[in-house]
Amino acid sequence: MASRLIRRKTLDSLGLFFVAFVMVSPVILFFLWMISLSLKYEIDNGAYPPILIPENFAWSNYLKVFEENNFLLYFWNSILVTGTATLLALVIGVPAGYGIARLKAEKSAVIIMIARMTPGLSFLIPLFLVFQWLSLIGTLWPQIIIHLVVTVPIVVWIMIGYFETTPIELEEAASIDGATPWQVFRLVALPIAKPGIVVSFILALIFSWNNFVFGIVLANRETRTLPVAVYNMLSFEQVSWGPLAAAALIVTLPVLLLTMFAQRQIVAGLTAGAVKGG
């Protein structure tokens, strides 16, 4: 009797595994195919029926991406824009989340909800004009600043939720222990909120890295970020598929690796806040 029940359970869980595997297969197949495209020579990519694993791997595709397209510069641009926009967002967003939570002014976060609903383009038009007027176009600053539209709301939103759940008694204890409000924040509230900061950091990083629409308007040949650079490769017709797929993989690989390693935090952050910028 008992062994039958156990057998039944193993069968059930095997069945579930199978179902889950089928559901995940479009994801696996997509990325496999992406890797395959990026490692094939032109002939293999044009073959019919298509080839998944070629006889000769075209590692040169990756070299070509960097050699012919200035990709190192664009990679560096992406790091600068995303890095600066995310760090700035943490510097101003974490204290703001704290202040809003403690002021019990969560309602003011409505502004963030509305920002979330606003199409990115309606930020672009006015800021584009302002940047032109300040003659900042041609530097990375316009992109860094406009990426704040993505990163700041994510950080503030997640941090409000986080600070709301940290017990206020700890901060009262600290103020009785002689801490000034700033010390309370820096020595007590901030260390306790570290997991929340990590979550908001990762999500802000990802959504800023992936952002495309701000770049196509604000970037020129020297200031492109990776998504824009990849798109520009595509729009030159006749470009061969191998290097194109390699470029796509290079763009998204950092994010995918981050997703793999920080899966738990990302899931936590997304289910809690369910935010996405832009």
Partner: peptide, 27 residues
């Protein structure tokens, strides 16, 4: 509160979770 020269023990203790016992007491 910080200038009143008082100490308080809370119902849930309010110990700083990121500090050791020694750091808590010496804070």
């Amino acid at each position: 509160a910080r200038d009143r020269d008082i100490a308080m023990v809370f119902q849930n203790y309010a110990l700083y979770p990121h500090m050791t016992v020694e750091e808590n007491m010496g804070f």
